[in-house]
Amino acid sequence: MAEQDGRDATPVRDQGILFDDGLTHLDENAGYRGPTACKAAGITYRQLDYWARTGLVEPSVKSATGSGTQRLYGFRDILVLRVVKRLLDSGVSLQQIRTAVGTLRERGVEDLSRITLMSDGASVYECTSDDEVIDLVQGGQGVFGIALGKVWRELEGSLSALPADRGDGPVAEADGVDELADRRAKRSTAS
């Protein structure tokens, strides 16, 4: 494995679409004009124009080169527009979204459609595996996730080796000594 900036750089294989049942194949080179992109993403033309001018989501098929020219957005561009809209709808500020997208781009993520994003309304997270999540708003700060199913299985394994009590008899410790009762008895005999 190659190492960059102190991190292991694991090559990522393109798995493509795992389940394509019922999905139509869209032309990757097809371009969609602004009004079509807006309708598909559920945003206003004003938002689209602002995000393009400020570099948040730029058209990949054809950029506007001056007055009267049309931008053409590709399918993946519209996918990113829709994700930005969903993040806005979940309460994430545009500034935080911009920071998250910037962090991804700094890390070399060019195709935002190939990652998993999550949000709690306050931040944006990239899910990199089942137990690693990166907080993109906090500059790539790693956070951890707890897969409860895994903890459940580990606990089942641990408890299977320990004694269980049904609660219908006297409470006793595993070695037969109730430490608290023993201390109380010693205290009452000392007084």
Rank of each mutant, 00 (worst) to 15 (best):
G157N: 14
S188M: 05
A52M: 03
D49I: 06
T10L: 13
S188I: 00
L117W: 00
P170H: 04
S158Y: 12
T10A: 07
A64E: 14
Y73N: 07
R183Y: 08
I134T: 15
G34Y: 03
I43W: 09
G145Y: 00
I97R: 14
L112C: 06
K150H: 10
T10M: 08
V12E: 13
E3N: 13
R114S: 10
G34E: 02
T128W: 01
Q141N: 08
D14S: 12
A2K: 12
M1V: 12
E173M: 09
P163K: 01
G145V: 06
G167V: 00
V151F: 02
T54H: 09
A172V: 15
C38V: 07
G157S: 11
L162H: 03
F19P: 02
Y50C: 09
R184C: 05
K39S: 15
T44F: 12
V84W: 00
T54I: 12
L117P: 00
G108N: 06
E110Y: 01
S90W: 02
E132H: 11
G157E: 13
L148T: 11
V133I: 15
L94T: 07
T103P: 00
R46I: 01
K186L: 12
L148G: 03
G167L: 06
A122G: 15
K85C: 04
R153P: 00
L94P: 04
Q141K: 15
S113Q: 13
E126R: 10
S67Y: 14
L155H: 08
Y45A: 14
G108H: 03
D135P: 01
A181C: 00
S129F: 06
D182Q: 14
A172W: 02
G169V: 08
G42V: 04
I97K: 10
W152Q: 10
G66I: 07
V151R: 09
L18A: 05
V124P: 09
L162V: 07
L88E: 07
A2Y: 06
L88I: 06
E106Y: 03
K39C: 04
I146N: 11
V83M: 12
L72V: 01
P170Q: 05
G31L: 01
L81H: 05
R166Q: 04
T128S: 03
G108L: 08
D27L: 06
Q4K: 15
G140L: 01
D77H: 12
Q141H: 09
M1K: 11
D175V: 01
M1C: 11
I97D: 14
I97M: 08
G108M: 08
L18N: 00
D89L: 05
S93L: 08
D168I: 13
L104G: 03
A52Q: 15
V83S: 13
R33P: 05
A164K: 01
I17M: 12
E28A: 13
G140E: 04
V57Y: 01
A64G: 11
D20S: 13
G22Q: 02
A122E: 15
G157P: 04
E58A: 09
V143F: 00
E173S: 13
Q138E: 15
